[in-house]
């Protein structure tokens, strides 16, 4: 099965890259852009058919490596 993992900066953590992207969008005329937050997207292929185990493993993966929980949140979607 395939899992999609979204890693995003926690609210309140400054995101200078997101700010730079927002500036650039403004320069292109997208005046409605209020803010941009940049994050990471990972696809993880798993061999187990057990969704419950997969979710538990993915949680551990996020906590141990994929996200730095000092500054980042994560969200897991399993297909």
């Amino acid at each position: 099965m395939k899992a999609k993992i979204y890693v995003t900066l926690k609210p309140g953590v400054l995101d200078p890259q997101g700010k730079a992207v927002a500036h650039s969008l403004h320069d292109l005329g997208f005046d409605d852009v209020a803010d941009v937050r940049q994050g990471k997207y990972l696809e993880v292929e798993l061999t187990t058919p057990d969704k419950k185990k997969a979710r538990a493993d993915l949680e551990e993966m996020c906590k141990k490596l994929l996200a730095n929980t000092v500054i980042e949140d994560y969200r897991i979607e399993i297909e």
């Binding site: 953590v13 400054l14 200078p16 890259q17 730079a20 730095n68 000092v70 500054i71």
Partner: peptide
């Protein structure tokens, strides 16, 4: 504790 993030001025 803490983390080292991208420099303020990129």
């Amino acid at each position: 504790p803490g983390a080292l993030m991208r420099n303020r001025d990129l």
